[in-house]
Design a protein around this nucleic acid. Sequence first.
DNA 1: ATCCCGAGGG
DNA 2: CCCTCTGGAT
Length: 213
Amino acid sequence: MGTPRSPKGRARETHKRLGFEYPDAKCELDHKNPFELLAATILSAQCTDKRVNMVTPNLFREYPDAESLSEASEVRVQELVRSTGFYVNKTKSLLGMAQALVDNHNGSVPSSMKELTALPGVGRKTANVVRSVALDLPGLPVDTHVGRLSRRIGITEEKDPVKVEMELNPMVAASERGLFSLRLILHGRRVCSSRKPVCEDCVLNDFCASSEI
DNA sequence: ATCCCGAGGG
DNA sequence: CCCTCTGGAT
């Protein structure tokens, strides 16, 4: 299978080659437990993980768990997370999320998709990050990178992230979905960038539907 | 479809 | 200046 043509063939070949390219791909949001990863992922919307990692140490020093965060001052949390953008909404999400954990889950992070997405500010992308990275459960986070690369390579034509996720899920073994997502993200940053992809350096350029080589 | 909304790169 | 960064709620 050198030059796959079917979407599933492209997905499997992509995962195989990126696995060789990025064997040690990991989540780059700093965190010590599921609660911290959940909060960091909420902050990561439309923001670099590097920027998130600059604010979370201060945030978690003052508010290390759901109990303390649920009672935090809204103005104080806004100050702490301001540089990540969308800070008014993100603060509301953080406080609401923490309150929901206290009220409905004894202060801990739930594991089901339904419970996670019921939390304020938590959609499927965030829920899948928490599930795959912190809870070791099946989850394929579809962010801007995963969506862009999947479309460029020819794995899907969908634009809606949820539809992309539904199409990709059956193409990848459940235990490898999180890793697949992380590798696409890494490749999206380093090679297949949004603005100016470096197709000459891409290990997928022989079968990529959008290759300019 | 639109809004939120700061920071860095080109 | 414009575009993009691990989105989610309305």
